[in-house]
Design a protein around this nucleic acid. Sequence first.
DNA 1: GATGTAATCGTTATCGGTTACGTTTACGGC
DNA 2: GCCGTAAACGTAACCGATAACGATTACATC
Lengths: 336, 336
Amino acid sequence: MTEVRGPVTMNDVARVAGVSNATVSRVVNGHYGVSARTVEKVRAAIDQLGYESSLVATSLRRSRTKVLGLVTHSFESYTVEVLKGVMEALSGTGLDLIVYANSDTYGARSAGWEQRHVTRLAGTLTDGCIIVTPWSDVKSNAPVVAIDPVRDSMLPSVTADNLAGAVTAVDHLLELGHKRIGFIAGRSSLAAAWAREEGYRQALTRAGISIDPSLIGRGDFHRETAIAPARALLGSQDRPTAIFAASDGMALMVLEVAREFGLDVPGDLSIIGFDNVPESALSKPALTTIDQSMHRLGFEAARLLQGLVYGNSGGTRQVLVPTQLIVRESTAPPPK
Amino acid sequence: MTEVRGPVTMNDVARVAGVSNATVSRVVNGHYGVSARTVEKVRAAIDQLGYESSLVATSLRRSRTKVLGLVTHSFESYTVEVLKGVMEALSGTGLDLIVYANSDTYGARSAGWEQRHVTRLAGTLTDGCIIVTPWSDVKSNAPVVAIDPVRDSMLPSVTADNLAGAVTAVDHLLELGHKRIGFIAGRSSLAAAWAREEGYRQALTRAGISIDPSLIGRGDFHRETAIAPARALLGSQDRPTAIFAASDGMALMVLEVAREFGLDVPGDLSIIGFDNVPESALSKPALTTIDQSMHRLGFEAARLLQGLVYGNSGGTRQVLVPTQLIVRESTAPPPK
DNA sequence: GATGTAATCGTTATCGGTTACGTTTACGGC
DNA sequence: GCCGTAAACGTAACCGATAACGATTACATC
């Protein structure tokens, strides 16, 4: 048992086995041109020293590392769903995943974090990256897939079918008999926000209802940003009988504002959200919403990235994941 | 605008700025010995090319990388809680986090995955590692902290105060008047399982109740493994009036088995779990359990690792996080 | 036994940075 | 004008691995 200082390197193995480091490399990678007896010696030395090849050195020298990266600016509750989906797609492929998070931007909103991390990783360590809910566009020479990209991004991306989902949400309200339907929009720089608003407009227009700008409030997807527009909407003399919020977080805030105004949900006001976060099932009344499977988003993103990196890159570059209406307790026909 | 093929390297910057790469390195790292004018030139070249230093090359050469690693074999729902805690501890420290997950072991139980990943990372890329719920012990020359380690591990570790928590759980049942209290143990190789069983024994002994081996069933923390022992316990002629399961997952299974036997919970049978996973609040009846804050576990693990890597390593190496009794609907006085 | 070919293995350049060390330049004091 | 010192910068070795290439050996063939 030799006591080693520092990590065991390939040279250590080579010295113990009495061969050159090139031979060790060949054995480790199962390359052709090593006699059975030498393989045996090297294997023994590897076992004796407990050698594992350095991921860093390997990826510096090699072009392909068999490792994919995922960059996120914080760990939200949906992040683990995305991760599960990614891992499921990667399972059995021999590909590993590295998740990179940077503590400086944690909580704070420092633009450009994705760019910094992607270039630091994609240059060498990883063969490609998935970016979860980016805040700005990213340039990279290695393949990058975005989940919920910014508007007009040229990146290959995976998103829920936000437009269809929003149409479904508004159709649900229309079918219940609502005519005056308010909308609280999300962060306008994101493609998802744009698509959800567009769905709202299309559904109304198709139903022969003209768009009333005073019924549209603006948030940025975060809960708190819905408070002011919700108050404006519910405080007006001709208030809507239903509100469609572009995220569950904002919808839950509308619920609170409704309580503040003494309105019964869904008696006086119907509320529908988007995302189907876990909390939406627990609110009172439970929130009707549009489900987008983050698990599925992660799965598809990983598949797409794999194709871009290892496979025939000539394929679809934009994947749309279907959404689903989840009817709970917060929607009902309008008051007479 | 120069069109670049491949990643932008330090040499590219050096060429554009008309200096050597050593000077670029000095500027990037803010080292002494570069004139203000040269700094300006280099900065300009960096901005022009959009250069970011390669994490891989840097960590290969440097001993310290300012990056910590976290190794996990899969992403469970509690993993995100741990990650949040870790990120909170790292916030503002300038330290980054890399989470490594390996797809081959996903779902499967291939022993030794921690060892492989830790040696691959801790050799160079990271300054230290956190291992979440390891399955075997790990050797490493770089600092390693384990969350919920295996029994008799020599690693610095962070765990919930499982012994005190188990005592609290059993005391809760004793105070309700239970005398025959069953126990379903967890995977015996883990320290947490041992401590929870020990707590069960201590609480009973302290109450003057002798341990009845027939009241102890054996699972491995996973839900399904509780089915057989639960059936054995509830099917016996002198069945217990309460069961303490060493994990919420197993407790929820006991709940199902009780239903199978036509037993009312908590009327005929009280059930208490351990962990306080989100699902435990949603079951019917909602599960009484012992809360262990995974967030806190992650936070403390990151703090501990930081001390080991960068600070005065001479400190505590075993951190115990307090637990808390959460009384819900699954426990009540025993039937008369 | 000489020669050719293939199998086996070592030497060395290289990936993109960091840093010890050496060299050049600037500038002050005499 | 000469010399000394320090600041400024370049050269090259190096981190641990890979792979192109060259060198050596083994074995078959004539």
